[in-house]
Amino acid sequence: MNDPFETLGLARTFEIDLRAVEQRFRDLSRAVHPDRFADKSPAERRMAAEQTVALNDAFRLIRDSMNRVLALLAAAGKPIHETARAEPSLLMEIMELREAIDDARNDGRSTEALVTRVGARIADEEASLKDAFDGKRFPPERDMLERAYEAGVRLKYLYRLRDELDALD
């Protein structure tokens, strides 16, 4: 994965100012979009297309919390590999939550309480990422990075659960 922060020339933080990101995306699009190169040489047109592909991908990644976590950790030298698994206690917790979702759905009950619970768990973990990356030197100190990494692995499961809840309504 290309580092979206680098492509967009933005500071590496977990919290982002979406308006500023969009502004940057538009400014760069104006500079590199193939439409701006329609009358230029073929070499420049190819390059414009290539840069725009990278720019669009960065914009897609940076808006998504999980991809932001992955990009931050990778850039800090502590990437989450696809095979990374959370500790058993979290897996148990996720299984319980998933059963609760199934039950609520089968009984036609509201999932609001579950949405709140998952949201709170996500906020807990995101705090570790903010600690490590927001308003700090990059890359963060080792123990903070370690905690951010563990939070990142847990978020993989929690975000997926949140998406499943979202898809229910």
Partner: peptide, 15 residues
């Protein structure tokens, strides 16, 4: 040229 254009865009009115 592409490099220059991108740098200028980032400078443009950056935060």
């Amino acid at each position: 040229r592409m490099n220059r254009a991108m740098r200028e865009a980032m400078k443009g009115r950056s935060v």
